[in-house]
Design a protein around this nucleic acid. Structure first.
Lengths: 235, 235
DNA sequence: CGTAACCTTGATTAAGATCAATTCTCGTGG
DNA sequence: CCACGAGAATTGATCTTAATCAAGGTTACG
């Protein structure tokens, strides 16, 4: 794997030449097409991943078959590292499983895979990695707390409005001119699942916002007509 | 503070004499009565806490005033450490806030408080602490994922059944004989808020389970009459 | 024994899920 | 270039769950 792809992963940034090379020796590259499963939550834990290109969803499924997306993982981010640390002594003795299911959402999704035991060995000599992982975990904890707040305290309209605003913010990072539109990189179905609802309800909610002239929906593009009102609606 | 209270906190266990003493010098003891606020989510971040005795809730409140409890923190556990690591370089420059609200649920709730900057200094010379914190964060991430799964994919009956079973399991750790009852250490109101519902709905749900002879509710004691059925109901 | 906090119960409402039927969109092959 | 078909999205009608509103009952504790 190109060493620059590794260095773009926050927890591996600023590693010295030697460590980067060692890491590169551990990493296995895996490629998935759209809708291919990366792991199930029933599988024994083998190691964690980072996204090089493409998009990955982490999700749970209820007995009745309803899906809820916990995370969408974009390039340079890791996933499934949590079990590594849950009970650091017996990851290997106990039959640890993956905490959720994982699926590629785009064709040619390329991942780096780090086997648990090799990586754990490397950690021992690299306390800088664990500090960066702490930072990564902290961000994720914050994200999950917000997520709970959203789905437990806000109705679907607020969640949709909030999502559009958040997405607008992140998509405009680095750009100077403020384009008032966002582009969804996931299907409406996946978006609904991420927002803790179903596609019909999402569709109706977008329609309602459109009727109120707050946004305009054109396929996977959403134009924000009235940012202030959208902010009000998201609370 | 009694040094043994410190050593019972997982992230501080197995520290040597010198480090424990140093830590003890940093810790400020604070005591709260029932319903007293420990911090609001609007407050600038100053540091984190651990519970010595008592009980603490971490919660969010919606604009409409509805509350949702994210965590209940029991003795020996830490809370509000997350912001320490979110952006490790600028905890102090940026105006970081506490991630949620926090309130004592019992009289004489005693907490240890660790100011952010003193603790961060100490971390630099103690990589063993950061590994233990990683483990603590991992557990909490797992907990929050489950929580999301619960409230987004399960109805109230399943959540209540699941809660009773989980509580029964944890309350029976260490005991040999298997007592078929649990004792709530929080009000029904708080339990409802923790389960993502309201007290009326919780009351009805417990009544329903009682009518079906699955449990018997006597104030804050719940007797499990039919564990198998309860498990079925929780899925 | 009085009162406040806590809890239960009932009636009603509202949000969103479910079920069902179209319609739209876009890639593929003729 | 068009027609077809499959998957994605929309729309409508109905149903279910749980929230809300309101009133009354229980418990604990000074």
């Amino acid at each position: 794997m190109d060493i620059r792809s590794i260095q773009k992963v926050p927890i591996f940034s600023k590693l010295n030449e030697r460590d980067s090379e060692q890491l590169n020796g551990i990493i296995k590259v895996k490629t998935f097409n759209k809708d291919e499963i990366i792991f199930f939550d029933t599988e024994p834990y083998r190691g964690f991943y980072f996204v090089v290109t493409g998009l990955v969803k982490i999700y749970k499924i209820s007995k009745e078959g309803r899906e809820h997306i916990l995370h969408l993982i974009e390039p340079h981010n890791t996933f499934a590292e949590v079990p590594l640390f849950e009970n650091i002594d017996d990851v290997f003795t106990n039959d640890f499983r993956y905490p959720a299911n994982s699926m590629a959402l785009e064709d040619h999704t390329t991942l780096g895979f780090l086997p648990a035991h090799e990586f754990t060995e490397m950690l021992k000599n690299n306390s800088s990695i664990s500090l960066k992982m702490l930072s990564g975990f902290a961000k994720r904890l914050r994200h999950l707390s917000r997520h709970i707040e959203e789905i437990s305290l806000k109705d679907v309209t607020k969640r949709v409005a909030g999502f559009i605003l958040k997405e607008h913010k992140t998509q405009n990072i680095g750009t100077t001119k403020n384009i008032n539109e966002i582009r969804l990189n996931i299907s409406k179905n996946d978006l609904a699942s991420y927002l803790g609802t179903i596609i019909e309800t999402l569709s109706r909610t977008l329609k309602k916002l459109q009727n109120e002239q707050v946004i305009t929906v054109e396929g996977r593009t959403i134009i924000i007509n009235d940012p202030d009102r959208l902010k009000e609606l998201s609370e």
